[in-house]
Amino acid sequence: MTDQNDNWEPKIIAFLCNWCSYAGADLAGVSRFQYPPNIRIVRVPCSGRVSENMIMSTLKSGADGILVSGCHPGDCHYISGNYFARRRFALLSNLLDFVGIEPGRVNFSWVSASEGEQFASVVQSVTEKVRALGPASRLVKKLDAAQAA
């Protein structure tokens, strides 16, 4: 698996809201801003849609890093989705820190549809942070060698 590999590359799952951050990622691509190819994008309707269950099971499945990104506060397509998300993410990131998940594994950001350059730099920064942390092991589910086929 990836973590035994010397050429390890972090695998980062990005939950991007359809209206801002996903469009921001699109703009980054169209504008040819370079950013690391380590992210795998999951498009969600709103950052308010991203539940703790999704974040935790992404960690469980072995993602080295997570990025959740939505519209800037005030810009939500659904008026207030990201305000609710902000409260939930604040508590979740504190709780994860409290139980010893390395700060930097789970990241949250606001990127609007016009911020292609900022999207690239957020991805750059998140990737560097996760790379510095190394492969994820905490809360990553592994089957014993004996149990795996």
Binding site: Y83, R86, V122
Partner: peptide
């Protein structure tokens, strides 16, 4: 608490890279 919000809830945990985005 989680079914409401204020416009200026703390958001220190948000990753911001561009200098212009250092608000909140």
């Amino acid at each position: 608490p989680l079914t409401t919000y204020t416009l200026d809830d703390p958001q220190k945990f948000i990753v911001t890279e561009a200098p212009s985005a250092k608000e909140g």
